[in-house]
């Protein structure tokens, strides 16, 4: 059933977010630490484990792939609710700080990518 897939996704999401909140509280920061990442790992493990995979029928899987496909539309909605006015009207300092941070980070991507590839594969 399609809803099984949605429910499985919801379970992974909630467990991940709870774990992320707990992790944040544990190290004493007021933020969710990697909740979504933990949820993604959970879903990966569940969908890759052979015993569960056998039971994930096509309909069940479509409950997950639907939300995966809704990702881009959701991101467009997200873009439309950003506080763009605040970003462009806050004066030069904030714009310069944000812009330079992005440029420097972009520049470092090829460097780190090479670093990772050069390492022996575990």
């Amino acid at each position: 059933m399609v809803v099984y897939g949605v429910a499985l996704l919801a379970a992974c999401y909630l467990i991940g977010v709870i774990a992320g909140d707990a992790l944040g509280a544990l190290i004493g920061v007021q933020a969710n630490v990697g909740g979504v990442g933990i949820a993604m790992l959970l879903l990966l493990l569940v969908s890759n484990s052979t015993s569960i995979k056998l039971q994930l029928g096509e309909a069940t899987a479509s409950g997950i792939t639907f939300w995966s496909a809704m990702y881009i539309p959701i991101v467009i909605a997200m873009a439309a609710k950003q506080n763009v006015v605040a970003a462009v009207s806050s004066g030069w300092m904030a714009v310069v700080a944000g812009t330079l941070a992005v440029l420097v980070s972009f520049a470092l991507i090829p460097v780190l990518s090479r670093l990772g590839r050069g390492a022996p594969k575990v």
Partner: peptide
């Protein structure tokens, strides 16, 4: 639709596969 709840739910879903 564009809030953190739907966004994160969809991001988790992209991990499938």
């Amino acid at each position: 639709l564009g809030g953190a709840m739907f966004r994160d739910f969809a991001i988790v879903a992209t991990a499938y596969g």
